[in-house]
Amino acid sequence: MTNKTRTRKPAQKTASPKDGLARRQEILSAALNLFSSRDYSAITIKDIAQLAGVNTSLLYYYFEDKEALFRAALEEAVGAAMRNYEEVASKHSEPVDLIDDWFQMHVQLAEDIRRLVKILMDYSGSPSQTRVLDDVVRKFYDVEIDILTKAVRRGQRAGLFKAVSPQAAAAFASTHLDGVMVRSIIQPQLDIAGAIDTFREAFWAYVGYKK
């Protein structure tokens, strides 16, 4: 009696959770590129699928519709910006260094921040606003203002800054940095680094800091 060798069938590959997360991230990245460069109404699910290199039907596996994808892209962009803000804050104990690095971060990450500002502008005029995303956007600005406010207070306690309102100084920085990014969207040829350097000097004068 002879032993028959059984041929094993190759195991079928199934998509792992990691594969799914990577694919979702690729779709979000493609969506961010489109939402930050074109008007929301001019973008279709097919456009996003083509840029991501996937079938249109796959997008509906991850996202209910274009509106859901837009919300996810906004959350992704805000989350990335907040991580950058918190990283800068964690690196410095000296207020002048922190604020100086804050300005420099906007130069180094200008393209990413411009994309976020463009998406926020679209969202502010979108009928698809939701309370959840309003909270995400509010938290983003709250984190920024809180970090800068604390830095200004530390500078005042150290005798480096004059007695201005720390919250007003933080709002001044946040608002005008956004303004530079909005201007760069309107005029793409704008020298962002030069504009931020000019504003940095205006901010130091506002808080009374002399180098």
Rank of each mutant, 00 (worst) to 15 (best):
T2V: 13
N3Q: 04
R8V: 00
R8K: 10
P10N: 07
P10S: 12
A11M: 14
A11F: 08
K13Q: 07
K13T: 02
S16E: 13
D19F: 12
G20I: 09
L21Q: 12
A22P: 00
R24C: 00
E26G: 14
I27M: 08
I27E: 06
L28R: 10
A31T: 10
A31C: 14
L32H: 11
L34M: 09
S36P: 08
Y40G: 01
Y40W: 07
Y40R: 13
S41E: 15
S41R: 15
I43Y: 13
T44I: 09
K46P: 02
D47R: 05
D47I: 07
I48P: 08
A52W: 02
T56Y: 00
L58H: 01
L58R: 09
L58Y: 05
L58D: 02
L59E: 03
Y62R: 07
F63A: 01
E64T: 13
D65Q: 04
D65Y: 03
E67G: 04
A68D: 15
L69W: 08
L69K: 10
R71S: 12
R71K: 08
A73M: 10
L74Y: 06
L74E: 05
V78M: 08
A80F: 11
A81H: 11
N84A: 14
N84Y: 05
Y85V: 04
E86C: 05
V88E: 07
S90P: 00
S93C: 00
E94G: 02
E94A: 13
P95M: 10
P95V: 08
P95S: 09
P95W: 13
L98P: 13
I99H: 06
Q108P: 01
E111P: 01
E111S: 09
D112E: 11
R114E: 10
R114F: 00
K118D: 03
M121E: 04
S126Y: 11
S128N: 14
T130W: 10
R131K: 15
V132G: 07
L133M: 11
L133R: 04
D134P: 00
V136T: 15
V136R: 12
V137F: 04
R138S: 14
R138L: 11
I145P: 08
I147G: 12
T149K: 14
K150Q: 13
V152N: 11
R153H: 07
R153Q: 15
G155H: 05
R157Y: 06
L160T: 01
F161G: 11
K162W: 01
A163Q: 15
V164W: 04
P166D: 00
P166R: 01
Q167D: 08
A169L: 12
A170L: 10
A171D: 06
A173W: 03
A173I: 14
H176E: 01
H176F: 09
L177P: 02
D178F: 07
V180G: 04
M181H: 15
R183I: 03
I185R: 14
P188R: 12
L190A: 03
D191K: 13
D191W: 10
G194H: 05
D197K: 10
D197E: 12
T198V: 07
F199R: 07
E201V: 01
A202M: 10
A202Y: 08
A202T: 06
F203H: 04
A205L: 08
V207F: 00
V207S: 01
V207M: 02
G208F: 13
G208Q: 12
K210S: 06
